[in-house]
Structure formats: structure tokens, C-alpha cells
Design a protein around this nucleic acid. Structure first.
Lengths: 237, 237
DNA sequence: AGCCTTATGTCAACACCATTGACGCAAGAT
DNA sequence: ATCTTGCGTCAATGGTGTTGACATAAGGCT
């Protein structure tokens, strides 16, 4: 049960004691700091020790607010999910609305890759997610789908988006060493494609840079076109 | 450097020295052992020290075969990909062939959920991955797509499949404590759907069990229908 | 057959990590 | 003014990946 809001250690702070360096700790502040650390110095910069150093407190003070690092990362993930749908209202064009939803999720993930990778594993089934489901299903229902079918299609859609967003985020979350390794391996692989073993790949050798790029947009458009094709003719349209 | 097949440390073994306990090491054997460790004792059981213990050798011997643990992890990922595509030959129906590819990948991930989660977000750029790309692009080319477009569409398709497979695997890979937490959150959420805040969800309350299910198949069918719709009329068809 | 190179298994050490239990200070209640 | 206890601090434990020096035997070469 690591992660539920009520489970956070000492959820209501009764006594607030400043750290040695004078700052007042809080769960919010720690999440802020974690996001900042990840954003500024890469995903591997997030450790309890560094967190303590950045916060100006002993590393173990973090455990007064979160059970463990997984708990902390879930809190970070929750913050990201809440932020992504913030202020979103569907427009009249249902396909465009779904597209915007997808891009919002993707951008939010890309903004916090490391936490996003962790978030994508755990479907939260919490407030923010239900709001998103209600919104998304609403878009499809207004497009003319039966409610139950709208739910199924929405789930297929959003899981696809989440999967791709996670893949994108994972690529960004790679440590510099891994990233370099990937790129070196790529260039070498491009050159070593032989016409004998891989005739097709050899024939489109100059297009192979696509291997290193995100396929989020093409996949999104395929998905949207499939949904559009299945939309029933609306009585009011 | 991590990654390409030719980059593996001492790719061709010239001298084979048994370990203290008598086993003959090999990259294959190490990958086998890693998969077994992860499968039996969870993803966190994979460490160089445990690997050494399980193999009956000094932990550092692993570094004679892989540059680092990331390198090893990529090899594990490539093994999973290779297993899934093993013995696959595309049939005459290109849509059915793509479907089979997707289901094979999904099954392979589900067979090694924890390893899949560890590895799924990495592009291995190793032998097996290239074989899969060659195969998949070939299917689309024979369906009538231009090679470059076939590559783009294949990547969008396979990334979607990988993303969903990873989500499925992640659900299977949750630790018991985490799984219980998720299920508790789910049931609580089902009950708390109120008609006021979520009128749509309340209306389809009996369909909400879909939230807990995989959306792999619906998403796959949407994707396939989109591809089928975009296929050019084949001269020979 | 016997030497020599060197691949490869072993050992010890380093620097980092998360997590925990004891300790003590001071905030806030009584 | 005293007492309780939340919470920041300290020290310690046992884990991690990775590296460099070392030893030993495998297998090519003469």
C-alpha cells in the first residue's frame, strides 16, 4: 500500500522543526526538490543522500515523510499526472480533443522522464485518473459511441498513449553513458547492415535514422484515424 | 558501447577455463541465469553478486562477458525478443501476420514479466531486433507500402505493441504488496463513483471492470484496421 | 614436447546506495 | 512550568556496481 495519500508518513504535520540549515521540511517541498534534482542533474541524481544535501537536512529526514524511495517516487508521479490534465476542456472537434489529451500526457511525461517511467507501471486508479476517464469517455460518447463501447475504446486509446509516452520518457531517462552507448551502437548498426542478411534494411539504409526517433505521432494518428473510421454517424451532425 | 553484438567483451571465446566450481561460463549461460534469477526471485534479485553466486563464480567474472549491467540487461532483452520471433514466418495475409507478430511479443513479455519490465523500454539494436525489423517491414512492403513508409508504419506499430506489452507485463510484475494496494484502490474507486461528480462513469458502472483489464487486443485491432485502411491497392491483388 | 602469451577466473578495495535504531532537542499541549 | 513526542541528526549495517592487480591454465607456436 505504499503510495495512497492517506498512507503517507505523518500526513498532518503537528510540529515543524527547522533543519540545521534553517529550512522547514514538508512533503511538498521534498517532491519539489526531487523534481528539480531530476530535471537539473539527470535521473541518476535522485538519491536520498543527494536529496538530503539539496534540502539542507540529514538524508534520513526524508523517511519522516515517505516510507521509502518508491513511496516518494509515486508521490512525484501523482504530481505529474495531476499537472498534465490541469485546465483541459474538450473542444467541439472530438478527434482534436483526443489528440490534445494525448499530447498533454506525452508532454507531461517528457518533462519528467524518470518519474514518468515509474508512473507508467502503476495505473493509479485515483482521483486524477477517474477525472481523465470521465473526460475521455465523454468525448467519445459525444462523438456518438455507445457508452460501454466508448469506455473500451478510450482505454485502448489512452493505454496506447501511455505506452508510447513511457517509451519516449524512457529514452530521455537514459543516463548519459547509456544514451551515448545507444547512439554509438546505432551508427555502427546502420553501417553494418548488410544486403545479404537484411536486404530490405539495406535498401532503405538512409531512412533508418527513423529507428532512433519517436513514433508517438504516427501511432497517434493511426489510432485517431481508426477511431474516426469507427465513429457512427451522429444524429445531430 | 553497450549494445551492439560485436561489442560484447571477447565475443569469440578462445580459452575456456572452468570456474572454481567447475562450470564453463558463457554469455548465453549468464543470460540464462539472469532470466532465471529474475523469474524466480523478482527483478531486484538481479545483481552481479547474486549472479556470481548462482553461477558459482566470482561476481567480477561477469565483466569478462559484459561491459556492465546495462549491457547484460540489453542482452536479456534481446533474448526475449529473439525467443518471441523464433520460428515465425509471415503468411500470405499481411494483417494476420502482423497480428501474430504482436501476439508473439505480448506472450513473450508475459512469460518474463519482470525481465520485460526491466528491459522493455530499451531499444537493443542487436541481432534479434534487426531481424524483427526486417521481417516486419517486409510484411508491410509485400502489402504494397513504399519501403520508407513501411518502416515508419512498422515502427509505430511495433512501438504500440511494445508499449502495451510492457504495461501488461508491469501489471504482472507488481509485487504482492503493490498488487494489493492497486486492487484496494480499484475497489474503493469503483464504489466511490458518484453520479454527481462522474455521471458518465456512474451510468456505465457495471462496465468499469474493463478498467482492470488489458486493452492490448482492442488497441491491436484498432491499429490493424488503421493500417489496413491505408494500404494501397496492390497491383497483384 | 615445451615454452609463452594472454584469456579469464579470483581477490580486495572503493565509493556509492537505501534503510534503520538510538538519541536528543525543542515545539506545543496541559 | 512541566511533559510528551514529533522530528531532525548521527552512526552503523549490509547491500550495490565497478575496477585494478594478480594468478593460473589453455592453447598456439616453435
Amino acid at each position: 500500500m505504499a503510495g495512497a495519500a492517506g498512507d503517507r508518513v505523518s500526513h498532518v504535520r503537528r510540529r515543524r522543526r527547522p533543519t540545521r540549515s534553517g529550512t522547514l521540511l514538508s512533503a511538498e517541498l521534498i517532491v519539489d526538490c526531487a523534481l528539480r534534482l531530476i530535471g537539473e542533474h539527470g535521473p541518476e541524481a535522485l538519491s536520498v543522500r543527494r536529496l538530503g544535501a539539496a534540502l539542507g537536512c540529514d538524508p534520513s529526514a526524508v523517511y519522516r515523510y515517505f516510507h521509502n524511495t518508491d513511496d516518494l517516487l509515486l508521490a512525484v508521479a501523482d504530481r505529474i499526472i495531476g499537472d498534465s490534465m490541469d485546465g483541459f476542456v474538450p473542444g467541439p472537434d472530438w478527434v482534436a480533443s483526443l489528440r490534445e489529451m494525448a499530447l498533454r500526457v506525452r508532454d507531461s511525461y517528457r518533462a519528467h522522464p524518470r518519474a514518468a517511467v515509474l508512473a507508467s507501471y502503476r495505473v493509479t486508479r485515483r482521483e486524477n485518473e477517474f477525472r481523465a476517464v470521465e473526460t475521455g469517455v465523454g468525448i467519445l460518447v459525444r462523438a456518438g459511441f455507445e457508452p460501454a463501447r466508448a469506455l473500451r475504446l478510450y482505454l485502448a486509446f489512452i493505454d496506447t498513449v501511455l505506452g508510447h509516452a513511457a517509451l519516449d520518457a524512457a529514452a530521455l531517462a537514459l543516463s548519459p553513458a547509456q544514451r551515448e552507448g545507444d547512439s554509438q551502437a546505432s551508427t555502427r548498426a546502420y553501417q553494418s547492415v548488410s544486403a545479404e542478411t537484411y536486404p530490405l534494411l539495406a535498401a532503405i539504409r538512409e531512412d533508418l535514422y527513423a529507428l532512433a526517433e519517436s513514433s508517438f505521432e504516427p501511432a497517434l494518428e493511426l489510432m485517431l484515424s481508426a477511431l474516426a473510421a469507427q465513429a457512427p454517424a451522429r444524429p445531430g451532425a
